[in-house]
Nucleic acid binder design. Structure first.
Lengths: 349, 349
DNA sequence: TAGAGCCTGGACAACGTTGTCAGCTGCGCG
DNA sequence: CGCGCAGCTGACAACGTTGTCCAGGCTCTA
């Protein structure tokens, strides 16, 4: 079999494609195995001269400690797992980054995976991470039954859920105030004179979607406005569906004069639909997004702080690992209404 | 010391906080260690009855295989590392996701980290990943000297660079056609009658920035337009600096009539500046971004395909791992000019 | 100068898994 | 009835590291 690896000088004491071990380093430096370990880990009790010899051998061989073996021995991996829905979604980028920063501050690496909103894949991923013995797990749930994590939690895997609560187990969870945020957003529209307000959101089996819907209903009820079925669209949020839903609400003899959208994907689609209409329709969206201020009009949104969600969750996770926590807790972060124009348009009937 | 772990029934044969091992499972099922291993790995040669007993013990104990030990034994981790600049940057989300999908298709997990454009942090991260014995590494370089990876590559870590070439080592690299894309974008502006065209880009020590600048110069030269220094801004791309640069280009007796921006962060800032000006200035930006079509006017861009970059790199990486590759290669992916209005505005002198 | 104590270094086991190999059982066939 | 074979099963070593513990040599003091 031809050797396809890039050829350089073959290293003494090591077979090709195999890495040098501490044993090799020890042999080359003429010291014992444990002495190498001490140097590599910066432990005390090695004379400068010995240390230098060991260091030279390390450099010469290109030795790098094998963390797998280390983990096996020490029990902790200094890595945490993040299971999220889709890394490509602009909402999760900052969240993931925030988790990473906290992990880094604790000397840990981040392993992450996308569940693609598929409960089975979520489970598969989470358990794969557990098999790798991550110290902790941050999960953005796709499914609604997380009992599969019970043995892991019992075995000491710190676990925090983010964005949506865990299903059927008692665990830490960090959420946005979806209900309050939606209620405020809809109340904002009502305050600007709207009564026929549409709501386009995700399937109510998703916790955040259900909460935002509840906020919409609460605001309407507070204002004494009976909600008509035709004003609500709850389901898949692919562009075609959302587009149809928006167009239906805007058609007919009594069209809605404002729309509240349940997440940023929906918001963007609705903006596209509204851009095609001549009549001015007010809009408030849940989730902020880049360039919302540059559109005409600027888009009023209920913003949640993705980075804060991630940071809070990760910090809580490391507090679990430090042994400082007892009972699982539910932490709710406030949302912020950002007015930019689209939510302040008056009703145009 | 109080036990702060959530309390459930203590498992027989395992200490609290310690996980059951195959040995524990074997003891409980009344079989040998190796038999458990066989069941866990789906190896043949186990009677259905034995398998059932083992499976029951596994479920009862909540056993999960320790992949660290497995890796130690087998040599491969089935995980790859991704070092990028910033996970929160919308350009890297899709790229990362694409790498993840390919990894998933090969049964591997993705570990990633952000270098924050800091060469030292890039190295620290990459080497930490190597210590964990990732099978391969996808690197978006922050630094320009990657000789520190030589021992790793020699030891068999598959390595692919993305978006920017590796520094001082010979390795696979997947790039966008930054030069060609920029040249086409600027030529597009020239074709619409512009001659005084500004260029705002990143520091030329960044490869992509240098290439795009080269594209700008080439297009200008092709058209026989001498470039004036006042038309170019090459440096940090924080909003304040970019804003100042744009405003300087637009002031004076002979202002630029069009601007070519070197990346999407710059583009967005320039859009904000232009929105404050009454005079219509043409704009073409490198990198596409969401909602570019909804602005007034729509923003003409040179789009690169982040997902394709990630996918191509990851596939190349796994081909290395499968042993099918010999010489490092440089792969360049085409860019695409997307016209939306801003790049087709005529000069307004 | 001898003894005590400290400092350095190394031998060895253990972490949890998998590969090797040998033993055991039961069955079929001569 | 005995032998061979196949199919299961388990004992054992090894992967590369770290923790424990002990040995040997040095220094310091009485």
């Amino acid at each position: 079999m031809p050797d396809t690896t890039r050829s350089t000088d073959r290293l003494p004491g090591t077979r090709y494609g195999n890495r040098p071990t501490m044993k090799d380093v020890a042999a080359r430096a003429g010291v014992g195995l444990k002495t190498v370990s001490r140097v590599v880990n910066g432990e005390p009790g090695v004379t400068p001269d010995t240390e230098r010899r060991v260091q030279e051998a390390i450099d010469a061989l290109g030795f790098r400690r094998n963390d797998s073996a280390r983990v096996l021995r020490k029990g902790r991996t200094a890595s945490i797992g993040l299971v999220l829905e889709d890394l490509a979604d602009p909402f999760y980028g900052p969240l993931s980054r925030a988790v990473e920063e906290v992990a880094r501050a604790h000397g840990a690496l981040l392993i992450n995976g996308s569940s693609a909103e598929d409960p089975e894949r979520e489970q598969e991923l989470a358990l794969a991470l557990c098999a790798r013995r991550v110290d902790g797990l941050v999960v953005i749930p796709a499914g609604d039954d997380h009992r599969y994590l019970e043995p892991e939690i019992r075995a000491g895997v710190a676990t925090v859920f983010v964005d949506r609560p865990a299903g059927r187990i008692d665990a830490d969870v960090v959420l946005s105030d979806n209900f309050g945020g939606a209620r405020d957003g809809v109340a904002h529209l009502i305050a600007h004179g709207h009564r026929r307000i549409g709501f386009i959101g995700d399937m109510p089996r998703i916790h955040t979607a259900a909460e935002r819907l509840r906020g919409y209903r609460a605001a309407m009820e507070d204002a004494g406005i009976p909600v008509e079925d035709a004003w609500m669209s709850l389901g898949q949020t692919n562009p075609e569906r959302v587009r149809r839903a928006a167009e239906e609400m805007l058609a007919g003899p009594e069209p809605v004069t404002a729309i509240f959208t349940g997440n940023n994907r929906v918001t963007v689609t609705v903006i596209r639909v509204l851009a095609e209409h001549s009549r001015r329709v007010a809009l408030v969206g849940f989730d902020d997004f880049e360039l919302a201020d540059l559109l005409q009009p600027g888009v009023t949104v209920v913003a949640q702080d993705a980075a804060a969600l991630g940071r809070t969750a990760a910090e809580r996770l490391f507090r679990q690992l430090d042994g400082g926590l007892v009972a699982p807790e539910r932490i709710e972060l406030p949302t912020r209404l950002i007015t930019r124009g689209s939510g302040e348009l008056p009703p145009a009937d």
